[in-house]
Design a binder for these strands. Sequence first.
RNA 1: GGCCGAUUCGUCUAGCGGUUAGGACAUCGCCCUUUCACGGCGGUAACACGGGUUCGAUUCCCGUAUCGGUCACCA
Length: 514
Amino acid sequence: MNQTNQSSEVRVRFAPSPTGPLHIGGVRTALYNYLFARKMGGKMLLRIEDTDQNRFVPGAEDYIIEALNWVGIQIDEGQSVGGPDAPYRQSERKGIYQKEAFRLVNEGKAYYAFDTPDELDAMRARLEAANAPAAQYNAITRMQMKNSLTLPPADVQARMDAGEPYVIRLKTPHKEEVRLNDLIRGWVNVHSSAIDDKVLLKSDGLPTYHLANVVDDHLMKITHVIRGEEWLPSAPLHVLLYRYLGWEDTMPQFAHLPLLLKPEGNGKLSKRDADLGNFPVFPLQWNDKETGNVARGFREDGYLPAALVNFLAFLGWNPGTEQELFSMDELIEAFSIEKIQKGGARFDIDKAKWFNHQYIRQVADSELAPRIQMDAQAAGFDCSLEKAAKIAALLKERVNFAGDIFPEARTIFYTPDTYDETIRATKWNDDAQRAVGAFRDALRAYEGDFVAENIKHTLSEAMQQAGIKQGKIMQAMRLALTGSGTGPDLMLTMEIIGRDETLVRLHQALERLN
RNA sequence: GGCCGAUUCGUCUAGCGGUUAGGACAUCGCCCUUUCACGGCGGUAACACGGGUUCGAUUCCCGUAUCGGUCACCA
């Protein structure tokens, strides 16, 4: 029935479950899928795997879409954009999975099971007590359970007619070697005895992940399944499903990505680690409506999407060159599955900050200005966009985040009310006093443009005339002007402060520091 | 515990039989500078262990150890 995919167009999908905010590892998975799709000139699909009604979280789907959009991952087909295989929400595709599940039963590859949760627990407890090799529903134990393999057909029919809940389970072969060739890991062999009789269709009529993802990937003509390593143990089961469904000849290729690990200690990266390390694990801020908790996001923390993407791309992949900074287009150009790492990658937020620093300094001053203006206003200061842009130019190379700029520029906005005592004690001496006085007088007489270059010239001339070595008094000058011993370029700072205010500050310093 | 996977500086990694084992983050030092940063230069720092294969193993094979993942009517 199914002929080989003639078009050979690469088609990949990102298939998250809307159970909450998208984890940063999920963003990386989406990114790798996207890079691969674009690199191969293929398509990127977005499918929502919402087959667990109990775990459904309102708003999660919108969050996922907004997050992908923010990082710059464009969806070609799928939820939010539509496409030929709609609907892309699995809860709306119920009938499709049921049809395939019943087909498997009819073909003898699956069966109905009526066991209650209590009965299943009892079975597992019994097997564990008996020290059985594996406490699972499988080729051996299924013959002692309540299912269409053990019950008389009439009984099965009666139960179904009576509306008794049932599931459909895969009739996993007893002894069979299942192989799959993972693009990242090579051949992986698993014996079918290690795979239990997985539930394919739940008693609520919805499929489990295993059935749904295989059916959808086939129907949507997915050519490559790129997903997290946590799926590797069930990948052989999926291979088995493709075989039983008769789709093995068009089965997609698999690539199981290494996991994102905790910064220190053992295990995969969790929200808790992020809180401990004081960094986000979600792309966007998430407001939990039930608990009222707010989980921070990379966006709200001031990370640029380009920086996050660059950082994430390098967590588990490397082009093999010494270039570190890559735009999305460059990543697409350089990307290849072969260069994906096999081992898990520890999450190092310092590296993320460094990437952000690299990108922040490239942002135009005018783009940074509104944020600075906003921060200034929040602190109670007026700030024109022109002034904010100048401040951006003054400080952007020094910071990791746009939000760090205003705090460093704070002294620009007000005449010092206090002066750093340590600097005062060590730097405020007779020469400093004379220097500030001489500079003030020179500035009063100066009538040209009040720009850094001219201010610098005025200052050095004044110091020369006063016979003072400029380097000796610069920190005192800074103290006089800003009240602080440290900060960005002083001449530019004065330019931004303006002539009048500069004079006011010099004057006040002479009065208050003596 | 069974099954599957992984293992190069503290961290992310390059390496695909012969290298002074390279880069980046972090760290330390020096320089630059009006200070603090930025930046520049340099330093410390790694092939988990044991067997093979080979003239030669970080690289190939087998064990061991360690770490991770997974064993639901969750994805």
